[in-house]
């Protein structure tokens, strides 16, 4: 039995400790906003926060995050929308949307660590893959969420 704290709630799940977190979140806890894409920690579609840091949940064993605070897209905005989500909506970022939960989670963790990023900071640190190519608007949204006055590529 594994004890997990997800979005502020404690859960007991009957799984092996080597089960990857993404599958626990989706199939055991029903949190289907987290999506598995590459399954190998490359693309970031499954990004969640562990103690506030971005982690790719397809490649994190659930046994390793017992006792830590896990946040998923469902719990990102504690009181309504998170500023990154507001910026995502304002910039009309998404296309197919499948990778976007992970992109938003990665951007939120990045902005917490780097509240006033340069464009180069964004390009070097937010490494998620979007097959639709939403990147132009992703970058605008991250700058908008950071409160940048000039939202340009």
């Amino acid at each position: 039995m594994i004890t997990l704290t997800v979005n502020g709630r404690r859960h007991e799940v009957d799984v092996e400790p080597d089960m990857m977190l993404a599958w626990v979140l989706r199939d055991k806890l029903g949190l289907r906003g987290t999506h598995v894409c590459c399954g190998a920690g490359i693309c970031g579609a499954c990004t969640v926060h562990v103690d506030g840091d971005a982690m790719r949940s397809c490649s994190v064993a659930v046994g390793d995050v017992q006792g830590h605070q896990i946040t998923t897209i469902e719990g990102l905005g504690e009181n309504g929308l998170h500023p990154v989500q507001k910026a995502w909506i304002a910039e009309d970022v998404v296309q197919c949307g499948y990778c976007q939960s992970g992109f938003i989670m990665a951007a939120a963790a990045f902005l917490k660590a780097t509240p006033t990023p340069s464009v180069a900071d964004i390009k070097n640190n937010v490494t998620n893959i979007c097959r639709c190519g939403t990147y132009v608007r992703v970058q605008k949204a991250i700058l908008r969420a950071a409160g940048a006055t000039e939202v340009a590529l």
């Binding site: 906003g33 995502w88 970022v93 949307g97 499948y98």
Partner: peptide, 19 residues
């Protein structure tokens, strides 16, 4: 016009075949 699915896809509520 903003896309009609922008909000659900920005909040993890959009559902796909895997869901």
């Amino acid at each position: 016009q903003p896309r009609v699915d922008i909000a659900v896809k920005s909040t993890g509520q959009s559902r796909y075949g895997v869901d």
